[in-house]
Design a protein around this nucleic acid. Sequence first.
DNA 1: ATGTGC
Length: 486
Amino acid sequence: MTTREFDGVRLERVREYVWEIPREGEMRVPARVLASEALLEQIGDDRTLQQLKNATQLPGMTKHALCMPDGHQGYGFPVGGVGATDTEHGCISPGAVGYDINCGVRMMRTNLSYDDLQGKEEELVDELFRAIPSGLGGGGVVESGLDTVKSVLERGVDWALEAGYAVEDDLLHCEDEGRRPDADADAVSEKAKNRGKKQLGSLGSGNHFLEVQRVTDVFRSDVADAYGLAEDQIVVLIHCGSRGLGHQVCNDYLRKIEKRHGDLLAQLPDRELAAAPAGSELAESYYRAMCAAINFAWVNRQLVMHRTREVFERVFGRDWEAMEMHLLYDVAHNIAKKEVHDVDGDERELYVHRKGATRAFPAGHPEVPKAYRDVGQPVIIPGSMGAGSYVLRGGEESLSLSFGSTAHGAGRVMSRTRAKKEYWGETVQSELRDQNRIYVKAQSGATVAEEAPGVYKDVDEVVRVSDALGIGDKVARTYPVCNIKG
DNA sequence: ATGTGC
């Protein structure tokens, strides 16, 4: 049997691209890493494997804790981690959702081709940068009061529809139709809501961005047809989350859970894994607050998309409808959700924690929008600003292998600190422009350095593994044209 | 990711 060991964590090769940390000691279940040997070497480089092993100790953990091919270490629980816990006897853990609740991506189509855009890149990137708030701190498309925030938290994109920032079609092409009904604005602290009211419709900082891209490759033409994608087509990718509001929700509940459930915490190997037992008051209120933050993030991306449509209207002198700027799909990659999964022949309700992991439901699943039901759920994998991104479709194996999940991006290989030593923002920008015809505009040169293409894993390799395992199949690849970021 | 720590 092939085995690998990293810092005392031993893995056995189950089959190609599937590695298992066998159950031992306090582990409740085994852990699995879905990766090629090359990606496993990178995953073994930091604390990811120890964190994954720790996660198997969460009460009610079912089948195995999982790490996707793009996994790296995170707060308590790996980014690229999937953990499914029983909703009756298990627990829910904010660290296994992540600080940026409903960080996610949406892709909007257009009927423009790359030819239509060439020569207008600088104008477009300038106009987008001017119109869409980005960077740390306040400033949003909508500067609202507390009542508006409450409405956003509970109604999600339904609020945006009523307020004139969305059309019905947008809701149909969003995970959960842009609304988690379990949301409760009262479970979200006043402090979190106050942070949110200044940031509704804003990109934020770090790896968040808006990118105008062209489709360069189509791998499955029947699925690409169903998604409305074709070579040379211009699309827009929006990657952002719930900003300070989600961050505050995570922090508030971590502190409350540590205090109230110290007995459970004492049994866990890492304080950062703090969890509320299923059925407890805090498990319920965290879930309702998290769902509210999820709704906030969907409205956030909706407002950014709305602004993008307006910018395209100005730059191209046509209505957005005439440019067929329709939402392809919006999918979260930092959430927990009550889902029913088959576990050894039994249907069980689980809290599926996906932290830096994307839902990837296959064809026929009732939660896949009608328009895509025959081909599978669109999965959007953002790459770095030099590499481009992928559209996948949920694969036939995802439910049995990964609780209906796949990767979420390229994943970092270099710390932000080291990136700032290796790169200079303006140099990265001019090289991308001169060598790759990619136009980047950012609030901060430091952010460009931190997000330089070289700090990321090979997104092609991540997606290749997802496709080979059948958890998320390659549909199309895109390449950046204009990129705005914090 | 984040008014870049509690």
